[in-house]
Amino acid sequence: MYPNNLKYSKEHEWVDLESKKIGITHYAQESLGDVVFVELPEVGAEFEVGDSLGVVESVKAVSDVYSPVSGKVTAVNEALLDNPELINQDPYGEGWIVEMEITGGEEDLLSAEEYERLIKEE
């Protein structure tokens, strides 16, 4: 559920420090339910840690995607515009949201183990 090669934020995003991809966690997609709509940032947009970089909506809920790191967007997953359910089906793969050139903030991210402990408390 929480791959060891990824880093996690307290706001339930994941970051792959190798591919520089970012998405929302299994826990986040499960809490949201069926994802039906995604709003993506522009390529080139810059974000600080904690900025809202996009929005994920389920049937009932609207949820911001908070940038887990600081940096500049280098690619967005346009497949989500037509197939937002990829976030439910494959949150760490086909369901990635953005790719970023990371300029900071990695040091505060959680390991898989730390993140799992966090969600157990929620």
Binding site: G33, D34, V36, S58, V59, K60
Partner: peptide, 8 residues
């Protein structure tokens, strides 16, 4: 219960 398997 708000959902069992999924709203849709």
């Amino acid at each position: 219960p708000v959902q069992y398997t999924g709203i849709i």
